[in-house]
């Protein structure tokens, strides 16, 4: 089962290595990882996506909490949250495919960030499914280079439900 976990940590040298070392040392899996300072420059937030059964996830969360530099751990499973990641993809753009690529860009509301006679470089932000769909459509055109951030997440504000 895929879980998205956010970890608030001290923004210090070696903290990333403590977290990454914990995962590798105990045989936990990291699917993606993103990390950057928070508005308070003394803290950083990591978002890790991982997989495991309930027992494994419980151990991951407890072990993370045990690290001295970890301040807060949130597992987003069962919560309402917004998840986004970004890709930059350089796709080969030949005479016959240039228009088709732009159509796909339009449909996905992606952006063209660089153009050359041979290629387009595209930027797209979205959840996993959207990015996968985009990649699937571009693959036949010839992907020259590709880079993807890890997921970032934020919890949705609880909405008041109106009774009908």
């Amino acid at each position: 089962m895929r879980h998205v976990i956010s970890i608030l940590v001290d923004n210090e040298a070696g903290v990333l290595s403590r977290v990454a070392g914990l995962f590798s040392g105990r045989g936990f899996n990291i699917e993606s990882l993103s990390v950057a300072p928070t508005l308070n420059p003394e803290k950083s937030k990591m978002v890790i996506t991982t997989t495991g059964n309930n027992e494994v996830i419980e151990q991951i969360i407890k072990q993370l909490n045990k690290l001295i530099n970890v301040i807060k751990v949130v597992d987003y499973k069962g919560k309402e949250f917004v998840e986004r990641e970004m890709i930059l993809v350089k796709v080969s753009a030949k005479e016959g495919s240039r228009a088709e690529i732009l159509r796909i860009v339009d449909i996905f509301r992606a952006k063209v960030v660089d153009v050359s006679p041979k290629s387009y470089t595209l930027e797209l932000t979205g959840d996993r499914d959207k990015l996968e769909g985009f990649i699937d459509l571009l693959t036949p055109m010839g992907i020259v280079d590709f880079v993807r951030t890890g997921a970032v997440v934020i919890e949705r504000e609880q909405k008041k439900r109106r009774r009908l």
Binding site: A13, G14, S17, R18, G21, L22, G25, I68
Partner: peptide
């Protein structure tokens, strides 16, 4: 040494 002992200490400092 901080790197080497990270997994076998409760915590460590440089």
């Amino acid at each position: 040494v901080v790197g080497i002992t990270r997994p076998c200490t409760k915590h460590n400092y440089l």
